[in-house]
């Protein structure tokens, strides 16, 4: 078994390593590894107007997606966890399964059909793209938060606070938010990582001027290897940082949960 594990870790890191090497290599064609060292590719990516615009668009989309996830996902998760009776539970489970049952591609097709109509002519707009990202990440947020609310035994603390005289708003302010804070941060970082890498929906519904980074990145694959590597590494770094930060905050809150139990 350890052999498989070691081989797997090689498999895991080899593509990333090659991307990194390629992004610094001066030239790489029909050789085992690139030759020379240069920052040129990164400078070119940074100077490219369509990449610059896509980068800014992506950061905006990520920010808005996270904010919307908090505003929409947190109350929904709370409602599901509090009203946790058979039927509601089943509905919640369905919500988490739907995105896997309906591929992004089909959803994108649906967006094209619905939002190119005269009544809802939103296709290609920035806000429709944000809504798409919200729908794709919402099930993740809801599942993660509901699981954390259970694990934190939020209901017990809210009951205790109620007997001590705390009103509904005092309970939300003093108990729910402080206790749920770390897992909310962790979930939003994962949402950020998912949103920044999202391609399958964006590729079909983004307008030409509001294309996010991954959609523009695809064009780079048909150009110089070094440029494509550098552009890919930028995306990889952003996703990896968000994902690692999410893991770390979630570990912190897990330690807290273990201590509370």
């Amino acid at each position: 078994m350890p052999i498989v594990a070691i081989a797997y870790f090689l498999f895991l890191f080899a593509p990333v390593l090659l991307l990194a090497l390629g992004s610094f290599g001066e030239s790489w064609s029909n050789t085992l590894l690139p030759t020379g060292f240069t920052w040129r590719w990164y400078e070119e990516v940074a100077a490219d107007p369509s990449f610059r615009r896509a980068f800014v668009t992506s950061l905006q989309i990520v920010g808005i997606t996270c904010v919307l996830n908090v505003l929409v996902g947190l109350p929904l998760a709370y409602a599901i966890q509090v009203g946790a009776k058979g039927g509601v539970r089943l509905a919640a489970r369905l919500v988490t399964l739907l995105p896997v049952a309906v591929p992004d591609l089909v959803l994108a097709f649906g967006f094209i059909l619905v939002f190119s109509s005269d009544q809802l002519p939103w296709l290609g707009s920035f806000w429709l793209l944000a809504a798409g990202h919200l729908v794709l990440t919402l099930p993740y947020t809801v599942t993660a938060l509901v699981a954390d609310m259970e694990q934190l035994r939020l209901d017990e603390y809210e009951h205790a606070a109620a007997t001590l005289g705390a009103s509904f708003f005092a309970r939300i302010r003093d108990i729910v938010f402080p206790l749920l804070g770390p897992s909310l941060v962790s979930s939003m970082l994962t949402v950020a990582a998912l949103s920044i890498g999202e391609f399958q929906l964006s590729n079909l519904i983004a307008g030409f001027l509001s294309r996010p980074y991954p959609v523009v990145l695809l064009q780079a694959f048909y150009g110089a290897t070094g440029f494509a590597c550098a552009a890919t590494i930028v995306l990889l770094l952003l996703a990896a940082i968000a994902s690692l930060a999410s893991s770390l905050t979630s570990r912190l809150s897990n330690n807290k949960k273990a201590a509370a139990a």
Binding site: Y78, A79, G83, V106, G110, F111, L134, E158, F168
Partner: peptide, 30 residues
């Protein structure tokens, strides 16, 4: 005890609208 039924319904509303408008409607159209 944690929240009234009305409050819970209000909490779930934005999520339901989001999923309805941007998930069920497109899939239904397909």
């Amino acid at each position: 005890v944690r929240a009234s039924r009305k409050a819970l319904a209000a909490f779930a509303l934005p999520g339901c609208i989001t999923l309805g408008l941007f998930f069920l409607l497109p899939v239904g159209a397909v």
